[in-house]
Design a protein around this nucleic acid. Structure first.
Length: 898
RNA sequence: GGGCGCGUAGCUCAGCGGUAGAGCACUGCCUUCACACGGCAGGGGCCACAGGUUCAAUCCCUGUCGCGCCCA
């Protein structure tokens, strides 16, 4: 016998272990079944399961379990990402706690240390995914740094390099001074900051006493200024263009150039140009062929290496000694000293508060520093074209579709992707440098050496590029590298392209776009057919969850408290397309109750001797109750299937909730009770058969979202052995004899019972009081039906017997209208006439409103002329019904009055 | 500044041309032999606002206001 309450904690680990051990999570490349492939968005090896992962992986698991039950050869590929910066950060911090630095350790030892760390504490998330119930094919688990994937990375790099799609270039990059590496545009976030804007006086060369006022938010970079720019159409500066200004502090003469970049409305209309430390200035510098001296080092400290030779002393303007004293100073400290020096020199005009957006490194959180460096780039624009086309032509579809616009907007304006990182943890770039600036990009050192030998005619010394690749380079290969590429494995042949990618909108650019570009270019096919984008999980007030706000819901704690099934069901039910999820614990309590409800319904079945009966033939069922619930189950199957096919997780969940609770528990089980408690026989046999059949359908339909409880009940009630539900076929509609007739029958009884209940409740009749039900004016079939269902009506409507009323109604009846019939409950002793009168009056007001509304419509000639036939007919019927109801309510009130 | 999304019952959200829905919360009654994580019944909405299209608008169009996100 099942326990009285469902206790998820006591069974989840056992059930998961059994499923995993059964091999049901595994794909079968050798089978002939149609594949269904999903690759997990690989969580960072440093990560632990947060609520966003819980949502993301629940949705994937729902899809995978659904398709697996449909007979597809499902492969859900697990794995983790090496997460370059994030992981290096974690291990560096650990070293720091021991008073060591990575530089002391040296590259090789440091990388070894990271591998050690990964072996000890990395990847705890995979255990947590198991707690969630994720049916990943674990033996296939991959890591972006493992040997196979590294091989794929090298292969792609070498190929793209040979095709000219990967190249080296000296450009301005976003430089993170904390990690001392270049980062891509995407890893930069703009932050509003309350800063200041300084107005400085640059003396005009050869015109003592004349100055040009320049406005800047970054005075510390002025050491690298190589021009002052004014707008070509700005009359204030027309005569200055072509002249030179003397750059304060350094004494260098710099040209005043006309360039439309300078906005006459902003600041003073003249801007200083520092090409090596500002993206806009860089463009100006290129247009005017300006020198581009770098004045900040990798840690964003003042560095004089490129300007030291040009320092000149100019009375009242510059002092090389001062500039030399700045060397090695942090940029913000240098700013203070430079401003102070300019004040001293009276070259400082004013400073004002200024709100500006400052680019910050998304990991380090400090302002990034544009720096002119030699880096590796990927020609993203070329790779983007076919990716855009694939979405335009529907080879890959985003769900919801509106995300395609986001994708297009970015892809159509994509910039060269800086793929080199000055880190130690990652895929080292397969490039070797030899004599005379020679470069060899090859799959390994040996090949590079051979190539060098071929070129130089002798063995030469080669040094490998120190840099590693952007983490997203290897993640971009995920859909095929995990399947064995570049080897032509059976897995690759069978499971690529994948079917669905489920992810959050925050990594459309980082990840989805890169997979599209690489997948199409390398494999010749899009990496996935559907991209399902879900929202962000927020707290119940809609705020982003964050540790600092303390509003984080830990999915593991939620699983402890409510069970994995309830957590999964909640996330699934709330996953409406295009919307963030506001998650409150109250929701989870509600869905835990749903799990309990299902448990108890199964328990009820069990107590009544219901067990799985594979020989039951639903198409042979004759009793209306059996046919009705079988028909309802058919509808539930259709709803659930359609919802899952359309990625409408919310619709799937609510359809299951409604059918299980409202149809099966509230009505079917209640109607079945008189049958179960009655004599044995064909009817009982059949209703029991229908009960076990429909419960089996419910368990199967719910399995994708609630794998634990369904598996437990499935086994317990004898539908199948341990861990068998997961591979049981998805239910299909069964033939049901004359379902319409069954619906008319049962829906009629439901309406009758509901009406009697409502009337009783409204005049405050306690359930302990039972009464006769008098029926007036009922059609013969209505009466016959009521009599057929007398047992259920007795139980559910607190009625003792049903009598036809021909003559005048007795005094003190409570009346109600149901279709053509009037229902009367003799409750003279119990009810309060005032309450009854009020009730009738209220119903009458409602009916009058209806009459007025419909009358107005039908009285409109244009409505009659232009509206659809069925709409007009429907309104005529509504009018007739409402008028009849008014007549009967009036009659009822007249009787009370008498 | 450009783009996208959202404003529907107290809350969280479906619906998106033809009688306004769900869950939770709330109110009343009920410890009825699966379940009080329960049963039954009920109250609660100018569908943000203003125009327009239409026989008919919560739904389509335009604008306004408010909220959120992305990009510059």
């Amino acid at each position: 016998m099942l326990d009285k309450a469902f206790d998820p904690a006591s069974m989840e680990s056992r059930l998961y272990a059994a499923s995993e051990a059964s091999g049901a999570f595994g794909a079968h490349p050798e089978s002939n079944s149609q594949p269904f492939t999903v690759v997990i968005p690989p969580p960072n090896v440093t990560g632990s399961l947060h609520i966003g992962h819980a949502l993301n992986n629940t949705l994937q698991d729902v899809l995978v379990r659904y398709r697996r039950m449909q007979g597809r050869d499902a492969l859900w590929m697990p794995g983790m990402d090496h997460a370059g910066i994030a992981t290096q950060m974690v291990v560096e911090r650990l070293l720091g706690a021991q008073g060591k630095t990575r530089k002391e350790l040296g590259r090789e030892a440091f990388v070894d240390r990271i591998w050690e760390w990964k072996a000890e504490s990395g990847g705890s998330i995979t255990r947590q995914l198991r707690r969630l119930g994720a049916s990943l094919d674990w033996p296939r688990e991959r890591f972006t740094m493992d040997a196979g994937l590294s091989k794929a990375v090298i292969e792609v790099f070498v190929r793209l390099h040979k095709e000219g799609l990967i190249y080296r270039d000296t450009r301005l990059v976003n430089w993170d001074p904390v990690f001392q590496t270049a980062i891509s545009d995407l890893e930069v976030e703009s932050r509003e900051t309350k800063g200041q804007i300084w107005t400085l006086r640059y003396p005009i060369e050869g015109e003592p006493g004349r100055f040009i006022l320049v406005a800047t938010t970054r005075p510390e970079t002025m050491l690298g200024d190589t021009a002052v720019a004014v707008h070509p159409a700005d009359p204030r500066f027309a005569d200055l263009v072509g002249k030179k200004a003397v750059l304060p502090l350094t004494g260098r003469a710099i040209p005043i150039v006309a360039d439309a970049y300078s906005d006459p409305e902003k600041g003073t209309g003249a801007v200083k140009i520092t090409p090596a430390h500002d993206f806009n200035d860089y463009d100006v510098g290129r247009r005017h062929d300006l020198p581009m001296p770098t004045v900040l080092d990798a840690e964003a400290r003042i560095w004089l290496g490129e300007i030291a030779g040009e320092l000149r002393a100019v009375e009242g303007v510059s002092d090389p000694e001062f500039v030399r004293s700045l060397a090695g100073l942090d940029r913000f400290e240098a700013r203070k000293q430079i401003v102070a020096e300019l004040e001293r020199l009276e070259l400082f005009e004013k400073v004002e508060a200024h709100a500006n957006t400052v680019p910050h490194g998304d990991r380090s959180g400090v302002p990034i520093e544009p720096r002119l460096t030699l880096q590796w780039y990927c020609d993203a624009a070329t790779l983007a074209k076919p990716a855009i086309e694939a979405v335009e032509t529907g080879k890959t579809e985003f769900v919801p579709k509106q995300w395609e616009n986001t994708f297009f907007a970015w892809m159509r304006d994509i910039q060269p992707w800086c793929i080199s990182r000055q880190l130690w943890w990652g895929h080292r770039i397969p490039a070797w440098y030899g004599p005379e600036g020679s470069l060899f990009v090859e799959r390994d050192e040996e090949t590079a050496k051979a190539a060098a030998k071929a070129q130089f005619g002798r063995d030469v010394e080669l040094t490998r590029d120190e840099d590693v690749l952007d983490t997203w380079f290897s993640s971009g290969l995920w859909p095929f590298s995990t399947l064995g590429w570049p080897e032509q494995t059976p897995e690759l042949a069978k499971y690529y392209p994948t079917d669905v990618l489920v992810t959050g909108f925050d990594i459309i650019f980082f990840w989805v776009a890169r997979m599209m570009m690489f997948g199409i270019h390398i494999m010749g096919e899009v990496p996935f057919k559907h991209v399902v984008i879900h929202g962000l999980v927020r707290d119940e007030k809609g705020a982003k969850m964050s540790k600092s706000k303390g509003n984080v819901l830990d999915p593991l704690e939620l699983i402890d408290a409510y069970g994995a099934d309830a957590v999964r069901f909640t996330l699934t039910a709330l996953a409406s397309p295009g919307r963030d999820i506001k998650l409150a614990k109250a929701r989870m309590e509600g869905y835990r109750a749903f799990a309990t409800k299902l448990w108890n319904a199964a328990r009820f079945c069990e107590m009544n001797g219901i067990a799985a009966r594979p020989d039951f033939d639903p198409s042979a069922a004759t009793t209306p109750l059996a046919r009705w619930i079988l028909d309802g189950a058919n509808a539930a199957i259709a709803e659930a299937t359609a919802a899952l096919d359309a990625f409408r997780f919310d619709d799937y969940a609510s359809a299951m909730y409604r059918f299980t609770w409202n149809s099966f528990c509230d009505w079917f089980v209640e109607f079945a009770k008189p049958v179960f408690y009655g004599p044995d026989g064909a009817e009982k046999e059949e209703v029991m058969g229908a009960a076990q059949h429909v419960l089996g359908v419910i368990l199967r339909l719910l399995h994708p979202v609630m794998p634990f409880i369904t598996e437990e009940l499935w086994t317990h009630l004898g539908y199948g052995g341990e861990a068998s539900l997961i591979t049981t076929p998805w239910p299909e509609a069964v033939a049901v004899r004359d379902p319409t007739e069954a619906r008319v029958e049962l829906d009629g009884v439901v309406r009758l019972i509901s009406e009697v209940r409502a009337v009783r409740a409204e005049v405050n009749v306690p359930p302990s009081i039972t009464t006769k039900l008098l029926v007036q004016g009922a059609a013969p079939e209505t009466l016959a039906r009521a009599n057929r269902w007398i047992d259920a009506i007795r139980r559910l409507a607190r009625v003792t017997e049903i009598e036809v009323l021909d003559g005048a109604p007795p005094k003190g009846v409570v009346q109600s209208v149901l279709g053509e019939a009037t229902l009367l409950l003799p409750l003279a002793d119990v009810i309060d006439l005032g309450a009854e009168r009020a009730r009738l009056a209220k119903d009458r007001v409602k009916a009058e409103g209806e009459v007025a509304k419909v009358n107005a419509k039908l009285g409109n000639a244009e409505f009659i002329a232009k509206a659809k036939e069925e709409v007009i007919a429907e309104n005529r019927e509504r009018l007739a019904n409402a008028q009849a109801e008014i007549a009967r309510l009036d009659a009822a009130m007249a009787r009370i009055a008498s």
